[in-house]
Design a protein around this nucleic acid. Structure first.
Lengths: 201, 201
DNA sequence: GTCTATATGTTGATAGAC
DNA sequence: GTCTATCAACATATAGAC
């Protein structure tokens, strides 16, 4: 989709995309600079012409992605729709992010806890707090306006939603490589339905 | 609870428990044999008196835990309760496993995909298939007997349940270290309610 | 922008003394 | 059952030629 508007990604961006895929598939620690260089068709030393360190690569991958994602969340929070619609939109935007940035989401899911313990990645903890505030705000607004059950444990509900949505990155495969699977929109439809109405008949 | 019935764990079991905690906290690759030896108060070379390799340690940790867990699942499948009760029990048994074996569950969640690519850990893929069969069987029985909605996408429903239940290991903290949190039974109660009836009012 | 060559540290694992 | 001592492999990163 957006490939048309960015016809010539810089060499730097190409390398970041290659690194993101490897970090997502094998893990950050498990991916060597040689792996990245090999996949790019250059030698490991050449990577250091573009980046300070392996760490700075994952840093740029994560911070760029998160800036975009939280821009979407902010827009939803600021809208004047009803709470149920906003919660639905937050779910849909998240599944869409998994569809369009699967590597970035996977890296965040797998490495954020560990990386967050280093000063350099302190912003990951901040974004985590911000994310919780987004979901909790939406759920509380839903309870207050009467569209959600009043007996909900808001924190637990937030955790269940966050977990189910984001861990989908482990099994969802984007359109290009999909064979008989669901689109991200279909997955979101099914989940929103189950979340709101349950599976009981 | 069970500490009374196993007063003297073998040195081998002590070392496995230490390794399991480190593997869960830092990841398998990220944990060095020196980390494990340090935590045990011995030197890295001494570990090789007890185990062939770091790999054999995680192997024993995972296979032991899975044998126990699937024993529980088999018992549920074989029972003559109605589908809804069996599904509830499967959820509860899973949250209980997170409570009692948090390190083992975390290791499986974080490392199974990667380890599963090696011959030695082929049983992880088998167990994964077995797990899917357990959940899908229970959901299909629920649909067939009319206790669950007939329009459910069984595979997606399975994935949502599996993900929400098991990823809880990332935030749930067992009783010893809990401060104002929920017991595993309370977490299971809340999730079963949301899963069956939804969050909508 | 990439390569050659290499520094420097860390890793899993081994052999044999105690 | 642990320690001493050590190896070979592999890791990230650097300096300077092309």
């Amino acid at each position: 989709m957006s490939a048309v508007s960015t016809p010539e990604p810089t060499r730097r961006d190409q390398l970041l995309a290659i690194a993101a895929q490897l970090f997502a598939e094998k893990g950050f620690k498990n991916t060597t600079v040689r792996d990245i260089a090999d996949a790019a068709g250059i030698l490991s030393g050449s990577l250091y012409h573009h980046f300070d360190s392996k760490e700075s690569m994952v840093d740029e991958i994560l911070s760029t992605f998160q800036a975009e994602l939280f821009g979407d969340y902010d827009e939803i929070l600021a809208s004047d729709e009803d709470a149920r619609t906003k919660l639905e939109r937050a779910v849909r935007v998240s599944f869409e992010a998994i569809d369009q940035h699967p590597h970035e989401v996977a890296i965040y899911q797998n490495e954020a806890d560990h990386l967050g313990t280093f000063e350099r990645f302190g912003y990951l903890a901040d974004r985590n707090t911000q994310s919780r505030q987004v979901w909790v705000t939406l759920i509380e607004e839903g309870v207050r306006t009467g569209v959600l059950r009043p007996d909900l444990d808001v924190t637990l509900t937030y955790r269940f939603i966050r977990d189910t949505v984001w861990v989908a990155v482990r099994w969802y495969r984007p359109a290009q490589s999909r064979g008989g699977g669901h689109t991200h929109t279909e997955v979101a439809d099914q989940y929103v339905r189950i979340l709101l109405d349950g599976i009981s008949s």
